[in-house]
Structures are given as C-alpha cells and as structure tokens.
Design a protein around this nucleic acid. Structure first.
Lengths: 198, 198
DNA sequence: CCAATAGTTCGACGCCCATCTAATTAGACG
DNA sequence: CGTCTAATTAGATGGGCGTCGAACTATTGG
C-alpha cells in the first residue's frame, strides 16, 4: 500500500525540490489552473510551465481537464499524501535501509579485499577494515582446537601468501593466542574490539 | 509550530532529492554510522559523504557524536517528521500558496499592461488577459448611470488613446451596452464569462 | 614528537536540468 | 478551410551541484 520504494520516493522528492514546481503545487492545491495563469504568477514562460506539468503528471501528482483549447490542471491531493506518508513513521524511513544495506557494511568491505577465489588481494590500510578482514580470516580456525605453527601458516596461505604478517596481526587483535609454539583461536569476547566501536 | 515556509520546505526537499543523501538517511535511521561506513556502503569517497553530511547537518536532520578520531552520525527523526508533516494536510500545502499568490492572477496580469500612471500600455493578445483588462476598465463606470458617447470616450482615454477599439470590446464582452447613442454599464452577471472559464 | 588513522576543506571537472526561443499541434469559430 | 488562441515539442544554453583527488586538520598512541 503505502510502501514507496526508494526510486519512487526519490522521484517524488526530486519533483518537489524545484522552487517553480513547489509553488505550482501550492497554486494548484488551491484551485485548478491554466498554463497561462501559472506562467504569469511564477514569472515563467509557458513552455517551462508545460515542461514542469509534464513531469508532475508523470508522477501522478497532477490531473488535467481539457476545456476548449485550455487545460485546467489540478493537484491530486491523495497522491501527494500517500507518497508523503511513507516518510512519516520510523518504519517508512527504515524501509529505505533494507534496499540499501542488503549487503552489510562488513560484507561490503570483504568484497573489496577478497577475490572470487576466496583469496585476500590486499590488506586494508584502515584499522576498522583490517579488523573485519582478520575476523573473516579467523573463521578458518576452530575454537578449542590447537594448531602448530606450520598448520597456521598453511591455513593462512590459502588466503594470502604473507602468513607471517597476518599471523602477527591475528595475535595483535586477540583473535588468536600462542604459547610455546602452539596456537589456538580465542573466544570472540576476548578479541580487541574494533578501535572506536565499544 | 509546524509552519514550514516555502524556503524551509524547499531546502528539505532539495536535501532528500539526491539518491546518495536519501540512502544515507535510510542508513542513519537504522543506527549511527561513520563516514567510512557510509562511503563504503554507498560506493562513494569519504569527501563526498562528508560533503553530504554537512548539508544534512545544516538542516538539523543529522546529529554527530565524536568518539576518538571517529564521528558517529545519526538521523534526528524528530526533525524529519516535523518537516514532513507540514505537507500532509490540506492546510500545509495551501500555505505555500499564500506566499506565492499574494498578488492574484488578475492583479499580476494588470501589472503587466498598466503603467504607474494608470494608463494602458498595450492590449494583451491573449483573450483571457484581455478580459481582465476590460474588467478593470469597466470599473471606471458607475452602474445605473447613463453616459453619452463622448463621455465614454473621455473616460476611456484617461486609460488609453484608442477609445474606439476599447469601446467596441467592452460592448463585445457584454460589460457595457448601448442603445440609441446612450451607454451604460451592465451588471456583472450579464458579462460574457471569460471564454473557457464557466 | 612522530606515525598512523579518520575526517574535512579546497579546487576542479562534468553532467544534469531549468529555462528560453522558435516552431508545431490542436481546438474553436466564423 | 483559414484564422486565432492555448498549449506542447524541439533544440540550445547556462548554472548549479555531485563527485573526486590532493592537501590539510585533528586525535590517538607509542
């Protein structure tokens, strides 16, 4: 019903984001108007008004009635309120989100640094993004199991050749721990949280 | 209270009329976001996001919270709904009108053809506009009083030299009538209505 | 005090769109 | 059918703004 998708809502806002069109809407809300009349009141030429009316009509915001050679244009108030209502409540605004963040922030970051074969191409310079990549790397280790160094290297190398650096980073972020040459995956609540995300 | 004037409303619509900004609003409605995060999710560079956030903040639609070197931006839902509500009801839309049509259509037309001294400069080509001008001319005659032709000419000439043509038009539109060289002003309900305005 | 990271500011570039003029279509009317 | 008026279409132009890279600022941590 009142589910305006992003594209529709965007089109609506674009329509109302022009002073001439917004004023036209105001004038047509009062009563129906001819092109001449609108042009005069807005200090525009007829073609310009005609142009704007066309776009408003395309959105169903305006209806026209012909009378002789004149056309009377009126605002379709229902359309206006319907469209507008979708922004009003929390749910309406959040609906925009769903379309946008179907892929989450973390997935999006991974897309950027992991190729189709599941191999790490480059390491992010950003701390937060590095944290996300390392978290993804950690999924290759089982919690509770102990690994010898060459096992760790092997697993990491399936993702990226420079296992030494990555191993060090994993430890640094508290995702893995080491004692006497033996490594294990730490429970998530012991990881260093990403810098400024409590 | 919720009286958004045209300028405010226009600024709001301009803000929401850009896809990037609209999506940002959606994302920030869900939870607070960092610039990095928004840039990644929207496939934009940080400067661009920063730029958009600045304009949204200028409208009071977004609030920011600093945490270390990061800034978390959140949507101010109240501001959004307040602004948006003003379009919802009939009255809100019509309020736009008042600012726009302080001078009515007819006054506006007259402005265009009558100079400061109250003299008619040119005659409108448009039929509807000519009707308006003639209506204005008719105000110089009292209803119920009878005029001889030279009186009519005199009165008209105070407005425009070509009294013959104008006299003829006044008759044509039914605003004045004549019988045996005597003229009088007709009551308004006998005027020919403007062509396509029932 | 230096390095590293997050964000902002600045200047430039390119595209979209609001507007105009000129030309065209479409009713109305004699 | 030809004229007149209202409106639309087409084509051209100019300005605004969304975007980016580069340089700068600010905060944190060794």
């Amino acid at each position: 019903m009142s589910d305006a998708d992003l594209a529709t809502l965007l089109a609506f806002f674009k329509a109302m984001s022009n002073e001439s069109r917004l004023r036209m809407v105001g004038l047509m809300a009062e009563r129906e108007r001819s092109v001449q009349e609108l042009a005069e009141l807005l200090d525009l030429k007829e073609p310009t008004v005609s142009h704007h009316l066309a776009s408003l009509k395309a959105l169903g915001l305006v209806s026209a009635r012909a009378e002789g050679v004149t056309r009377w244009h009126a605002l379709r108030l229902e359309a206006l309120t319907t469209l507008n209502r979708s922004m009003l409540d929390q749910k309406g605004v959040e609906k925009l989100t769903r379309e946008v963040s179907a892929t989450s922030w973390e997935d999006k970051v991974l897309e950027g640094f992991v190729d189709a074969g599941g191999r790490l191409t480059t390491m992010p310079a950003s701390r937060r993004k590095r944290w996300i990549v390392l978290k993804w790397l950690t999924e290759n280790f089982e919690e509770g199991r102990r690994y010898r160094e060459h096992e760790v290297n092997e697993i990491i190398q399936r993702r990226h050749p420079d296992c030494a650096t990555l191993r060090r980073e994993l430890i640094g972020y508290g995702m893995m721990a080491r004692d006497a040459g033996v490594y294990w995956r730490c429970p998530e609540d012991q990881w260093r949280t990403t810098p400024e995300r409590a």
